[in-house]
Design a binder for these strands. Sequence first.
DNA 1: TAAAATACGTAACATACGATACAGCGCTCC
DNA 2: GGAGCGCTGTATCGTATGTTACGTATTTTA
Lengths: 275, 275
Amino acid sequence: MISSIAELISDRIGMMPAGERRAAQTLIANYPLIGLKTVAEFSAVAGVSSPTILRFVARLGFQNYPEFQSALQDELAAQLQSPASRTLNPPALGGGAVSPMLEATLDNMRETFRHLSDKQLADIVAKLADRRGKTFLIGGRFTDPLARYMAAHLAIVQPNVFHLAGQESVWRDRLIDMGKRDVLVIFDIRRYQDSLIRFAETAHQRGVQIVLFTDQWLSPIARFARHVIAGRTAVPSAWDSSAALFVVAETLIGAVTRQLEADGAKRIRELESLR
Amino acid sequence: MISSIAELISDRIGMMPAGERRAAQTLIANYPLIGLKTVAEFSAVAGVSSPTILRFVARLGFQNYPEFQSALQDELAAQLQSPASRTLNPPALGGGAVSPMLEATLDNMRETFRHLSDKQLADIVAKLADRRGKTFLIGGRFTDPLARYMAAHLAIVQPNVFHLAGQESVWRDRLIDMGKRDVLVIFDIRRYQDSLIRFAETAHQRGVQIVLFTDQWLSPIARFARHVIAGRTAVPSAWDSSAALFVVAETLIGAVTRQLEADGAKRIRELESLR
DNA sequence: TAAAATACGTAACATACGATACAGCGCTCC
DNA sequence: GGAGCGCTGTATCGTATGTTACGTATTTTA
């Protein structure tokens, strides 16, 4: 049962030639407003010619472009009439195996943030934005990409940000550079890695402040951590989800950036000019 | 301060002659869709003549009818972009400053999945789970961690999964290994990287099927992509958010794993015993 | 009540829009 | 490697659309 044009498109997008597929993707990405504009504008945004747009709507089963636009408008009208429908029926799209995954992830995030206090976040932000020390980031097998992601951003807004990669022996040696003023951000969820635990313990002994991203079961590293962020990871999948931790990381990245801007960090202003 | 056309109308409706007032009332009653239709339709519904409609929009301060329609569309676009502002949980949980960041992120995810069909995801999953070809993953400056994350998982459930890291010249050379049966998963959001675009184009020419993770503005790579996943990235932060794409990635990881299990892949059973 | 001013609709006009024919190109399949 | 097919863009065409001029109706004011 096809009830919306968006569904109709995704149903047939596989059978479309390249140009029309671009049109379809553009429409989906700017749904539905781009479809209400003129063929010329639509084609310009999609990067194809006008006839391709017309062939695209023809393939969807419409006799002509105005008819297609009317259909879009009718759909919009129905949507606007019942604002609830947007939030309630996850427009039938989520029917299959997708929706439970998304729902669980959204729940995880809400739960994760519910257990996070503003105070806690503020403390971490203050520490991360404190430019007197260095910041090191590291993660486990599956979470190291999160460390990389965070490092990639933080390294831009401030100096002395280092992602610890590669062999265990390599980052063990970096311990020499770490001291009391420094922060070590560790991502560690089940199954917790011994190497990370040992590393955290040694760093802790050197007085390094540890910010730990872990799951609700808490990695043993929590014992050494100054700040612990416990994210929900349960989803209907064979794997645990790091999405909640990812969002916390992004939140921190944004907050640290804002903080540094507020501090009037010269670096931020210089960055602007470099762009 | 007049912020919407509806307000503008109610502000001036008192000063309008009868005919134009009918037009105004009709527009308010069918706001805003009737204004997106043609002058003739609008006038017919309002029960006035075309020129009256045009005089009406002129009185609102618009130079011509298309300009008026554009303004309505822009307004609609703003409304549709942030469903949170109107429809979603107002204060919901009393959680103080529960981070507008989180709210925006949750919205982004819902919106992203709303534009994703099961069919589309199923197609991608089928391709990724097709063990006859190789899978390559690569990302941009900020999104490469997502590629790593996905690669870390996929590489466990199936062979021939490669994350392309390091210098551009390094992965360019890997093009030799790529052919029609292979899949290239690319993460590319603003600002789109030339190196990635060139790489994608070459891979496309070699017949490699490209799965693109991008933002709602669509990387130019969409032109070469077999499948495009457009994730919402807007958040109240100095940075764009990749969280929605992250969740899509996790969803795909889970689905591919399930698919391979269903296929009875020996590898999966062997994995179990290794743990 | 008459005259003037304003408002409104009819009809003709010009433009810009959607539609179509056609040619070039790449791809697939012998 | 060649022939055929399908896809795409360019250029052209017809028309629906917004626009405007003008005449009639309606209201307002003296």
